[in-house]
Amino acid sequence: MTDDQGEPFLEPMRMWREWYQRSEKQWSEALTDIMADEKFGKTWGRMFQEWLHAQHMMAELIGQQLAALNMPSRSDILSIRDRVGEMEDSVSALTAEIVQLRQQMKKTATTNAEKPPSGVKRTRKPAAKKTPVDETGKTEASSVAPKTSGDSESAAMP
């Protein structure tokens, strides 16, 4: 937390933020319940189908106008992206081929040395002693772990 924790002066928004964060889960669950309802599903499903048709019509209409102006449409840009993707795939396939060729050359060169292709020994054994970790994963070290965004249940990520 910041150094101004517990100092609500000029921070009325902070109280609201804290309330929001505390009650977010309940509000989210209530909204999810509504979305799981069949009535909502029907309305949403119908709206979605209409949106699909509207989007299709709009894309055609705008595409024609952009073509008349000699400008690329979204689908033109997307097709360029796909072409770039295809080229990336080709480059990646070539890279993989080169890596495999290099591996084979290395393998041939080190056949007598009886070394595995990656050049590392595959003989590692587990350490005899391990740090005990309980079911919640708490160790002594975790109690001093730095607080990060990823630790919070209500953090921005799923």
Partner: peptide, 30 residues
């Protein structure tokens, strides 16, 4: 849709921790 307000709550959490560089960095990465 599984947790519609979570992202906003996360961003608010970030505001409260904006001076914590590690927190902000991890937040942006996520």
């Amino acid at each position: 849709a599984l947790r519609p307000l979570q992202k906003t709550a996360g961003r608010m959490g970030m505001l409260d921790n904006v001076l914590n560089d590690k927190f902000v960095e991890a937040h942006y990465r996520f």
